[in-house]
Amino acid sequence: MIQFTINDQQVEAQHGWTILEAAREHGIDIPTLCYHEAVAPSGACRLCMVELKDGNWSKLVASCIYPVAEGIHVYTETERVHNVRRWIFEMLLATCPASPEISALAERYGVTSTRFSAADPDRTCMVCGLCSRVCEEVVGLSAIATVDRGVYKRVGAPFSRPTDVCVACGCCLSVCPTGAMQSLFDTVRGIPATIMTQLTA
């Protein structure tokens, strides 16, 4: 077992665990959006940043991928952590204004408004890539993937056409943290998600 502290509280974790896994095991809250137990962590949303400190030295790491180590001191509620969280939430509120899931999560962490204007009032997807990762890693089909890069990055099937590689298993729908897959689904499969939900119910 590995011994270390989170917020000055002594905790134990098994070798190979991440800070996030250890924290959740001990009931210590860290927000996440792109994390799901079913797939390998990808460290994309950066909401789970925590601060490591050792004397005067400190740095921020993504707790979903940082492996626990003997004697480290982890802090989940420092000023720097809050600064990263607040800005990500403010930007998410403006990027995905139509996602009640994101608004609710932001509100839980005290962010209820944003200084930024929304570009697309209907948008819900923040391209965390959970859907494509579950399709690749769990289903094994890779029917969808993240395409393009930078600000244009999005989720889709090749050439933005419905693909018959998709078997409509619905895994992507179930892992999507923002509800975005509901509307994306029919463009991938050619079947509206509402029908899909009825079929699998």
Binding site: S132, L141, S142, I144, A145, V147, R149, P158, V165
Partner: peptide, 12 residues
């Protein structure tokens, strides 16, 4: 590789 990977690469 799946076509999706080629498409990801070609658009990246």
């Amino acid at each position: 590789v799946p076509l999706t990977q080629a498409y990801s690469v070609a658009t990246f």
